[in-house]
Simulated assay, not measured.
Amino acid sequence: MGPIVTIDGPAGAGKSTLARRLAQQFGWRYIDSGAMYRAVALYAAQKGIPWTDEAALTCLCRQLSFAFSWHDGQLVIQVNGCDVSQAIRSQVAGEGASRIATLPRVRAVLVERQRDLGRAGGLVMDGRDIGTVVFPDADIKFYLDASPEARGRRRWLELQQRGEAVSLEEVIGAIRHRDHEDRTRRASPLRVPEEAYYIDTTNLSIDEVFALMVDKVKFFGVSFRSPDPAGERDAQKRPHAR
C-alpha cells in the first residue's frame, strides 16, 4: 500500500499535468477529481438537468460510476463504462463543473466516491478540497498556485490546441470568476491544507515544479529509478518553495 498524495489549488495552476507526471514517475494511480465534476455537468446537460437543480444532480451522481486507467501513457476516464476523456475537457463542461461544485449534496456524494477510489492508497489525487476534506490525513500534500493571468494564459493555450475559439480575456475573466466561487462557497471552500507544501508556479516551468515535487516525495522516503541520474542530483539541490 503506497502513500496518498494530494494536490490542491485554483484552476490552471498545473495540478492535473503535474499529478499525472508524479503518478507515472512513481507507479501510482491518478484520480482527477475535477473530471468527476465535469462528467456530472456533461451528463446533466445531456439529460436536460439544470446545473442549479441540486436534488436532480445529486440523484444523477449516485447513478454514475467512475473509472480511471492508463492507456498508451494517456489517462482514460470512463463514466458508466463510456470513455469521456475528451468530452469533459470542453469549456462548457468546465463552466458546468464550477456551478455544480458549489452544491453541498453533490459534493458530499462525489467526496465519498473519491474516498472509495483512494482507500487502497498508492495514488495521486488533485482537486480543490482533496487535502482539506477528502483526505485531510494524506501522507503528502501539495498546494499549487499562480497569478490569474498566468493561469488564464495556460488554459487559453489548451483551448486553442483543441480548436475552441475563445479570447484570452474571456478565459482570464472565467478564471477570476471561478476563483471567487471556489474560495467563497459554503461547501468545502478552496484553501491551503494544513501541512501542505505550497508552490507558486507563476514563473516556474512544469519541469522546475516537478523537480520540487519529486524532492518532497523523496524526502518522505519514497524512491524510484531515475532515468537521468545527473538530473536527479540537480533536482536534489533545488531549494524548496514555500
Rank of each mutant, 00 (worst) to 15 (best):
G163N: 08
Y197E: 06
E149Q: 14
P189L: 03
E164L: 02
L159Q: 08
I100S: 05
R99L: 14
T184E: 11
S90L: 06
K237C: 01
A146M: 14
Y43F: 07
L144P: 08
V217N: 08
G14D: 05
D179T: 01
G173L: 06
A19M: 15
D179S: 01
D129Y: 13
E170I: 08
V79P: 00
E158D: 04
R238P: 02
E149R: 10
G121I: 06
V134R: 12
A211M: 07
D182F: 13
L57V: 04
H180R: 15
C61F: 12
E158A: 00
R176G: 03
S98W: 14
E158V: 02
V79K: 01
R176K: 15
T58Y: 01
L103G: 02
G94C: 04
P148S: 05
C59N: 07
K218I: 03
H240K: 12
R119W: 11
T17Q: 13
F135Y: 14
R107E: 03
L159E: 03
A211C: 10
A55D: 13
H71F: 00
V171Q: 09
I172A: 00
G27A: 08
M125D: 11
E208I: 08
A67L: 12
P227I: 06
A165G: 00
A55G: 05
V217W: 14
F68S: 01
D200M: 10
D182C: 10
W51C: 01
D139N: 11
R62N: 09
E158N: 02
V209T: 14
G9Y: 14
A211N: 07
A23E: 09
A120I: 13
P50K: 05
Q160I: 10
T201W: 15
P189G: 00
A101W: 13
V124Q: 09
V133K: 01
F142W: 13
L144N: 06
V92Y: 11
A120C: 14
D83R: 05
G96V: 10
F220T: 03
A23H: 09
S226I: 02
A165W: 13
I4E: 04
G118P: 06
R233E: 10
Y143G: 01
E169W: 05
L157N: 07
S33Q: 13
R107G: 05
R191G: 03
Q25M: 11
L157D: 03
D116N: 15
F224R: 03
T58R: 02
M213W: 12
R154W: 04
C59D: 13
I172Y: 00
G9F: 13
F68N: 01
A55Q: 13
R225L: 01
E181G: 07
R89G: 04
P3I: 08
T202A: 04
V166H: 04
G127T: 15
T201I: 07
Y43D: 12
R115G: 11
Y198M: 11
E149K: 10
G9T: 11
P239D: 06
A101L: 12
H240T: 08
G131A: 03
L18Y: 06
E112V: 06
L117I: 11
D179W: 06
P136C: 06
I140K: 15
L190C: 08
P136Y: 08
D116G: 15
R154G: 01
I4K: 12
D139V: 05
D32N: 15
L64T: 03
R242V: 04
